[in-house]
Amino acid sequence: MSIGALGPAVDLATGAIGPPMESPVHELVVQLYEEMRDPVCRYLARLGVPRTALDDLCQEAFLRLFQALRSGKQVPNPRAWIFTVARNSGLNAREAEARTQELDEKADWPQVASADPEAAILKDETLARIHRLVEGLPSDQRHCLRLRAEGFRYREIAGIMGVTVSTVAGSIRRSVLRIREAIHE
């Protein structure tokens, strides 16, 4: 999908969704929000953003997309753009949080769950092995895997994380090969 000035993804042929609005840019942003709200919130949670701040940061990313499009900025890949903005906001929020309370080393991995996720996962031997392995991966490798699981290509992941494509390829390669080994342990 490519949007921006006259990007083809703005589907005007199907008509507006919901009440009439000022411009199709509204509709596009709302449509993206409906599609991406949960993945963005999950990603923010894994960055270590407190649950109470997830919705605010998630919406902030979409509002910033709206502002960018409204000002005529080209956004060739809105999904990656949203995740990039969300990541930056999430890391800033985490830093702010760290000023008030010291983060432990694993603050960027699941800080969530009303139920105990491990309890459900550990019942399955294969999932338990993968869980232990993933928990032991360096933070960047985990995030590469997560973003790949969200459907991003290596180049998009590199853009979101601010690293090279070769770094992403190496991270994913190492992780998948280790997962393969863990399955056969």
Partner: peptide, 29 residues
């Protein structure tokens, strides 16, 4: 297997956006 694991973790954690698209519409306007 990793995707199965990830799906299980996502389901167990239950993280999801709680604000509706109508809320975002109001903010956009």
């Amino acid at each position: 297997q990793f995707m199965r694991y990830q799906t299980a973790v996502d389901a167990a954690e239950g993280v999801a956006g709680t604000r509706s698209s109508a809320d975002l519409r109001r903010k956009l306007e």
